[in-house]
């Protein structure tokens, strides 16, 4: 297939932020990361042209999308690949819109970016292939992007392709076997010991390596953390009650318990009546202080970390976890007790 690669001004070698308003342009063949992408696409597909545009221009000027599409058509594209944009917001939005417009125009189109890139929501019907967070992961990101593109070009269903994070719409297709036959076949496969056969793949959350145990809680600094959205009354820092994109920290210094009326839960996923009557039901500060006094734990970390675990994206949740772990480790905390609603 004839492939047109879309990238931004930076990866096209035009310039950095100073060139972010550069208008769309087309060059023959692959440039920048497109060279590696072209090689990974194999003999069946060739990057015949590269279209690029400044990030500001592409993300904020509605006319630029039409210009980009004209340049793509002028190269007789059959497939459009946009990115990888990693975590860059404007670049991600541009890549997603280009892929979405190309898909709507009847071309095969994919974009590549990190799962929490705001562009993920902008791709219309075009699939997005997950990339790394930064350009340091260019190599593996391009490999995954090219592999997914080859499989989409070969007509494979999106649901089975590794790394596709958006637009995994279910497509109707005719199967030679009836649903009853397929169900019995899957059941028989299960009885034969095949635990993975399925028509509906479930998301893979990866694997968390358990931290090693602590030697002695009586000498350890212990932290309380929660996704129960307990915040000071009035929610001064505006923690979201659902789909939180952030977490907050609050001091526990001088506090023996979380007093009703001074703290509240703003979690949007359950009735907070019990939590607000006694916020220690979410963040067990009173009992933890008691154990600190009794010498059961060395001491309690001076802050608690909190978010709202309600419809939170896996990507955000993973980021919170990584940030919490790194923050607590830096502070010398040996164990964290997380309350989960």
């Amino acid at each position: 297939m004839r492939v047109v690669h879309y990238i931004n001004q930076f990866f096209a070698g035009i310039g950095g932020e100073d060139s972010a308003s550069a208008p769309p342009e087309r060059r023959d063949g692959a440039i920048g990361p497109g060279r590696r992408l072209d090689a990974l696409l194999g003999d069946e597909h060739t990057v015949v042209a590269t279209v690029f545009c400044g990030d500001d221009r592409a993300a904020s000027d509605p006319a630029s999308l039409d210009e980009i599409m004209q340049l793509i058509r002028s190269a007789d594209a059959e497939m459009v690949l946009a990115g990888p944009a990693f975590s860059s917001g404007r670049y991600g939005v541009a890549c997603a819109r280009v892929a979405g417009a190309a898909q709507a125009a009847g071309l095969i189109a994919l974009a590549s970016m990190a799962a929490d890139n705001p562009g993920v929501a902008e791709a219309g019907a075009a699939p997005i292939v997950e990339s790394g967070e930064t350009a340091r992961q260019m190599g593996p990101s391009l490999e995954r992007f090219a592999a997914a593109a080859r499989r989409v070009a070969a007509g494979e269903a999106l649901a089975g392709i590794e790394g596709v994070i958006a637009s995994t719409r279910r497509l109707n297709r005719l199967d030679a076997r009836s649903a009853a036959e397929r169900a019995v076949d899957l059941a028989l496969a299960r009885f034969d010991g095949d635990k993975t056969a399925t028509e509906i793949p479930q998301p893979d959350f990866g694997h968390v390596h358990p931290a090693p145990p602590i030697d002695n809680p009586r000498e350890a600094l212990i932290a309380l953390v929660s996704e129960g959205a307990v915040v000071p009354m009035g929610n001064p820092d505006r923690l979201e009650s659902a789909r939180a994109h952030k977490w907050l920290r609050y001091s526990l210094e001088g506090l023996d318990r979380l007093a009703p009326g001074e703290y509240q839960s703003v979690h949007g996923g359950f009735s907070t009546v019990a939590a607000n009557a006694d916020p220690n039901r979410i963040l067990p500060l009173d009992a933890a202080r008691e154990m600190e006094r009794d010498g059961r734990i060395g001491s309690l970390y001076q802050e608690y970390l909190v978010t709202a675990g309600n419809g939170t994206s896996v990507a955000d949740a993973q980021r919170f976890g990584v940030e919490w772990a790194s923050e607590l480790r830096r502070a010398g905390v040996r164990a964290a007790i997380l309350t989960s609603t």
């Binding site: 129960g228 359950f270 039901r281 009992a287 989960s340």
Partner: peptide, 11 residues
């Protein structure tokens, strides 16, 4: 724990 809305309690 004993309930979703109160992971560290039991009203």
């Amino acid at each position: 724990t004993r309930g979703i809305p109160y992971p560290a309690g039991d009203p």
